[in-house]
């Protein structure tokens, strides 16, 4: 069983966000990038599938994603068996899915497990797009994956905590919401070791056509619309005001 896990570097949300001068995009130049948290969940689930059913886990990233080497090495340190860096970059999810589909057409996988979404998916989520391009079935918002011969058993979650287990013919694409257990950490020493050993395979894929892109008129932060009344004065006074608010509504006894 060959399991491919596409990984994406995304802006770190703790950072202050700046826009490009024309106001239609996010200025990426000074942003810090981190692994998409749902891809981290997907990698964990893929490693769990491998531990139970055997096979190999290959992580795949795009060369132009900021800091992608570090993300791929960290995944290798966590237990991935191989890492692939696809040349080029993608300005949206459609273009990303086209590059990954071109790679997977040449190096087929039985299971493709990736994050259900990324925080900067303006034009939609990767897993169904990738599946549609490859002609594979797909399941999103997965919370557990088990391999079972030529099929996979995938638990899919709905709102309100309802879920269903699907039996899906392989090959298939899975969008992971949460792994069965929190993602493992790789010791820094191990990451350093893996980085020194190298071993990221660089591949070039043929250019693919993509869907018509969205026309972005502007991007902005939503604060203008409505905002909380901010309490100030230091910890003590803020605590006093909150207690008073609750007390005035009869929510604090005494």
């Amino acid at each position: 069983m060959r399991i491919v896990v596409p990984l994406k570097a995304v802006p770190d949300l703790v950072e202050e966000i700046e826009f490009t001068p024309d106001g239609t995009g996010i200025d990426r130049e000074y942003l810090a990038f981190v692994l998409n948290e749902w891809d981290d969940q997907a990698l964990e689930e893929a490693l769990l599938v491998k531990e139970v059913s055997g096979g190999e886990v290959i992580v795949a990233g795009l060369a132009d994603d900021p800091g992608i080497d570090q993300l791929l090495y960290t995944a290798l340190a966590k237990g991935a068996d191989g890492a692939v860096k696809i040349s080029g970059g993608a300005q949206d999810t459609h273009a990303r899915s086209a590059l990954l589909a071109a790679y997977l057409a040449e190096s087929p996988a039985d299971l493709i497990i990736t994050g259900v979404q990324a925080p900067d998916d303006l034009d939609g989520q990767l897993p169904p797009m990738l599946a549609a391009r490859l002609g594979f079935p797909h399941v999103c918002v997965a919370i557990a994956v088990e391999a079972a011969g030529g099929s996979a058993r995938i638990r899919q979650e709905f709102s309100g905590g309802r879920s269903q287990q699907l039996e899906v013919t392989l090959p298939a694409v899975v969008g992971v919401q949460a792994a069965r257990q929190p993602p493992r950490y790789a010791p820094i020493s191990r990451i350093r070791q893996v980085t020194q050993a190298g071993g990221i395979e660089e591949v070039t894929v043929p250019a693919a056509s993509t869907q018509p892109a969205l026309t972005v008129r502007r991007m902005y932060t939503p604060e203008q619309t409505g905002h909380a009344q901010m309490l100030t004065g230091g910890t003590g006074p803020v605590a006093d005001q909150i207690i008073e608010l609750l007390r005035s509504r009869g929510l604090v006894k005494g």
């Binding site: 999810t93 939609g124 897993p127 169904p128 797009m129 549609a132």
Partner: peptide, 15 residues
């Protein structure tokens, strides 16, 4: 989430 992104490709429409 399942259907939107898949149909964007299959029906050839921006999402």
């Amino acid at each position: 989430l399942d259907q939107g992104a898949a149909l964007s490709v299959l029906w050839d429409a921006p999402l």
